[in-house]
Nucleic acid binder design. Structure first.
Length: 425
RNA sequence: GGAGAGAUGGCUGAGUGGCCGAAAGCGCCGGAUUGCUAAUCCGGUGUACGGGGAUUUCUCGUACCGCGGGUUCGAAUCCCGCUCUCUCCGCCA
């Protein structure tokens, strides 16, 4: 959510930004609602002020004067109730409209409609030339009995799966590797709840209920299965005021992620690329309300993501996501796309991580502010998030890139201490 | 899951219908004084939103005593619902 004042003062910039992001918003409606809200609040304040006056007179008034004063007070009570209803109505409408306005965009982010217009910042690693026809991860998993899709579908439905045998060890190894790395990078390690309240989801920018939701919600509660630990890590300091000298805060969260993938039916594809549940190690950062500070952490997060895939020796490219593909909360977003030899006709890059700087877009809704010692007032912190390892997609990249002519799959060296073997099959 | 207790400002803690944005103490900030790592005294000390004034420190109003409703002319105070914390019991990995 953008600051209302900012939005009103920078109408043209906001409109241009919305156009770049492919979002239509009714700014004039927002401005009109803002004025109506402000007017209604002022009227309410005045009414309450008068009511207080009347009430204060009552204890001192003579018995003869009292009934008239009480009657006057009652009148104010009714007027105030009507005013409150009006304010509430206006605010609901205003907020709904305001929430549709996406975050502003980093000046260096490419302007474009969809992913095709995103910019490849750099690529790493040599794409391997196979002297045999490489299998995709589904075929490899079947060959080595690594994933049970049929039982997943039987027990929980399409999109769920069982990892088996070395795939289990691989997932644990990826988690371990990421956790160790992030600890060295100064992140505080967390395992997080896999459920979170509606209000936390909304604060982060998810839409927990309704027809287009990507979220599984728990019936007759206000709880939802989280789609990412970004939700639970971002919720930790909800409504808190942080000490600016303690920033930036760098958190790492291990959680399951649940996504309905509604509307993705056509893109569902095979295997574990797009599933309803997976395990992920996530980075989350809080910085001072300063673009230089959050940009710096943003680059740090991307650097760590790259170092993880460099350590795994998997080729990847870094994408600077274009305006049309940023979603609501992100000010700028970098994705890592890993080379997946079994994808498409002859291999394709597939998204494995995503790193966003959300500036104060999330913190404003979550009420996370920081205070600078003696300085007056508070400011909304900047929040960032990035994937360290999304296990399913990392496993795809490993299986497909590390397969051998004889059908076996090597284990990346850095994972061997946890997998315990250097080869599958 | 059952029974009970509680939630007040940075902290401790008073306050059971109007004079309470809220005593007192601690802490913190400013000043005075004494000079020996301290004591004493005086003053100040929340946040948000809005109006007015002002090139800083100003002023007025409204809201906030866990959250949300209700009663009342008037609620920190009474009533209802919820959340959280603590204690005891049960259950459980």
């Amino acid at each position: 959510m953008l600051d209302l004042q900012y939005l009103c003062d920078n109408k043209d910039a906001v409109l241009l930004n919305c156009r770049n992001r492919g979002v239509t918003v009714d700014l004039d409606k927002i401005l009109a609602l803002r004025d109506r809200r402000s007017q209604a609040i002022q009227e309410g304040d005045a009414l309450r002020h008068q009511q207080k006056d009347v009430s204060a007179q009552i204890p001192k008034a003579s018995a003869a004067d009292k009934p008239a004063l009480v009657a006057k007070g009652k009148e104010f009570r009714e007027k105030i109730a009507a005013n409150e209803a009006l304010v509430k109505e206006i605010e609901t409408e205003l907020r709904a409209e305001q929430m549709r306005v996406p975050n502003m965009t980093h000046p260096d982010a490419p302007v474009g409609k969809d992913e095709n217009e995103s910019k490849t910042v750099r690529t790493y690693g040599e794409i391997r030339k196979f002297d045999f026809k490489p299998l995709d991860h589904v075929a490899l998993a079947e060959k080595h009995d690594l994933i049970d899709f049929a039982s997943g579908a039987k027990v929980a439905g399409h999109g769920f799966y069982y990892l088996k045998n070395e795939a289990v060890l691989l997932e644990m190894a990826l988690v371990q590797f990421a956790l160790q790395k992030l600890r060295k990078e100064g992140f505080t390690l967390y395992t997080t709840p896999d459920l979170a309240r509606d209000e936390v989801l909304v604060g982060i920018g998810f839409n927990p209920r309704g027809p287009e939701t990507q979220i599984y919600s728990i019936e007759s509660t206000d709880l939802n299965l989280v789609a990412t630990a970004e939700i639970t890590l971002g919720g930790i300091y909800k409504d808190d005021i942080l000490d600016i000298s303690k920033l930036p805060l760098k958190l790492c969260g291990l959680s399951h992620c649940f996504r309905t993938e509604a509307g993705a039916a056509g893109r569902a594809g095979r295997g574990i690329y797009r599933v309803h549940q997976f395990t992920k190690v996530e980075m989350f950062g809080y910085t001072a309300a300063d673009n230089a500070a959050s940009d710096a952490l943003h680059f740090e997060i991307v650097r760590i993501e790259e170092e993880i895939f460099q350590a795994l020796k998997i080729p990847y490219r870094v994408i600077d996501t274009c305006t049309g593909d940023l979603g609501g909360p992100a000010y700028r977003k970098f994705d890592l796309e890993a080379w997946m030899p079994g994808r498409g006709e002859a291999g394709e890059f597939g998204e494995v991580t995503s790193a966003s700087n959300c500036t104060d877009y999330q913190s404003r809704r979550l009420g996370i502010r920081c205070k600078q010692g003696d300085k007056k007032g508070t400011q909304y912190v900047h929040t960032l998030n990035g994937t360290a390892v999304a296990c399913t997609r990392a496993i795809i990249a490993i299986l497909e890139n590390y397969q051998q002519a004889d059908g076996s799959v090597m284990i990346p060296e850095v994972l061997r201490p946890w997998v315990g073997v250097d080869r599958i099959g």
